[in-house]
Design a protein around this nucleic acid. Structure first.
Lengths: 252, 252
DNA sequence: CCCGGTAAGTTGGCAACGACAACTTTATGG
DNA sequence: CCATAAAGTTGTCGTTGCCAACTTACCGGG
């Protein structure tokens, strides 16, 4: 006997009751999420998103073509996984912020949470920022953009608080300056994380040892000499369409 | 005698045959490099390294299995392409440095060259720092490591010069401090480039507009408060082997 | 309460891919 | 001058992403 339960999200899943449980219910009841879960596991095991959609289906106990009823193509499954990564990032950043009041400590905490997630989940992190997700016409998938924007908003708010509290110069109330600072922070942390997980920088004792000196230096520089940038530069549409200039081709 | 072979793109390359002129010389004479060239072109066209080895072979005008005589597997071809990318980076950085004497200007020039190469060659840049190259046991391929080290040495030397010339504090003669500064610079530039080419930050007017404020702020911070880090952290062996802690799995 | 439409799964199939094996052609040095 | 190895060839195998056609289960309107 089966029992259908609905969550607050309207997602249905099926609970198998001990009596007369059908071993192969025709409908899974919660594929989609289950596929994302399986993909996440596979991603973590193989540290690569080259796994086959068929393998994901196998793990979820469905036929090799079932995933296509939920994700038009593999890219869409990966996008859903990436979005989960950004959600986790937002969660963990918020958790790291909890209880901290000092503005600088809060900014450092954002950086630590960021790098820590990357180091603990290299493949997921790589996927989150990867280009396999961007379709040639539409840029990055909306589901991922939304999740990423939420994570970014947290850092942005923390930065704004720091200005309010006087830890950063008042001129940074200017969105153009604050945007530049935010971008600088993300760039530094993103670059550091990528270098760390891609074996360009060796294992530090712990994340703070790596993050604090770097981010600390940047924050000092920002405080003493705030950078400015054209506004609205974040998530603007499609830079990489024009990639044709000055390509590397010939051996010199 | 020379023999001209044309690919489907109309790209010509010339094979030197020692004597007899056959329309289809059994031996290409210069495969290997030609494969790298074809892969580079394909990488630039498709902005992706998902192209097939067979397609590369087709472009080089050889059979689908010929590449395996030069590269044990696809990863090895890609590693050779990535190495070419780092060589180009070193070249361009040196070219950008030419004629500049001011220490700060030279450091900014390094950053600009770095980001400019990435923006002009997104797929190549992504490949250079990608993880598809790292074999599970041996880390990053030696051919790439060597090329990358050469590019890094240039920035390092420029940094050392800046200390010598007094543009940066004397305490940074200390390798531990200079290493940290170097890593911070790379991190910032790498992160900025990745965010730019992966559509997280919109198109700036030009590279300077993006690089100078960011890198300028970091340099100010470094000058006023030099960070320090454990030595020899660059290219140390294998961080990402231990990735198992704190994975993202369940929806919370 | 049945009945038809649609969402969710199913099997079957196809072209293409990476990698292996076995064969053939060319260059070379003792 | 021939043996041998390097370089290129055809053929094959298992697997993959995705398409097509079919089947099963659910759900709302008469």
């Amino acid at each position: 006997m089966k029992l259908a339960v609905s969550t607050s999200l309207g997602v249905f899943f099926v609970v198998e009751t001990s009596r007369g449980s059908a071993p192969h219910p025709y409908h899974h009841g919660n594929l989609g999420p289950a596929l994302v879960e399986a993909a996440l596991a596979l991603l973590h095991e193989t540290q690569d998103w080259a796994f086959s959609l068929r393998e994901v289906a196998r793990r979820a106990g469905v036929s090799h073509n079932a995933p296509y009823k939920h994700f038009p193509e593999k890219r869409d499954l990966l996008a859903a996984v990436a979005a989960r990564g950004f959600e986790a990032l937002a969660e963990r950043t918020l958790a790291a912020l909890e209880g901290l009041t000092d503005a600088r400590a809060r900014l450092l905490a954002c950086g630590r949470a960021f790098v820590a997630l990357g180091i603990a989940n290299p493949a997921l992190y790589r996927l989150m920022f990867s280009a396999v997700l961007t379709s040639p016409d539409a840029g990055r998938p909306p589901i991922e953009k939304a999740a990423a924007a939420k994570a970014r908003a947290i850092v942005d708010a923390t930065l704004a608080d720091a200005v309010q509290s006087g830890a950063l110069p008042a001129s940074m109330a200017n969105p153009s300056e604050r945007g530049a600072a935010s971008l600088a922070m993300w760039s530094l942390m993103h670059g550091l994380t990528m270098l760390a997980i891609d074996d360009f920088v060796g294992p530090p004792k712990d994340v703070e040892t790596l993050v604090d000196p770097m981010l600390g230096a940047l924050l000092n520089g920002i405080a003493s000499h705030p950078p400015a940038l054209p506004a609205n530069i974040w998530m603007a549409p499609r830079l990489s369409q024009r990639h044709a200039d000055d390509p590397v081709t010939q051996t010199s």
